[in-house]
Amino acid sequence: MSRTTRDLRKKSPIRKAPFVVITAFLLLWLIGVATGEPGRVLEQAVQVCLSCIGIG
């Protein structure tokens, strides 16, 4: 590791915000999973979406 990188690491505080945000969205995802949403998403995703094509 270069000296510059080492020096910067020493004086760099860890940012907490990303961990809070990631945890919050992970919880949101878990709530979605608990309600059975992925099954519904899969049902929709395996059907041809006529709106996407531009005819529905």
Partner: peptide, 23 residues
């Protein structure tokens, strides 16, 4: 969905892209 007792608010989708966004 709500009328049929299914709580599909899009949380799993928002959660997935939210985690990606946070990373």
């Amino acid at each position: 969905a709500l009328e049929n007792g299914q709580y599909y608010f899009g949380f799993s989708v928002l959660g997935s892209i939210g985690v990606l966004g946070g990373l």
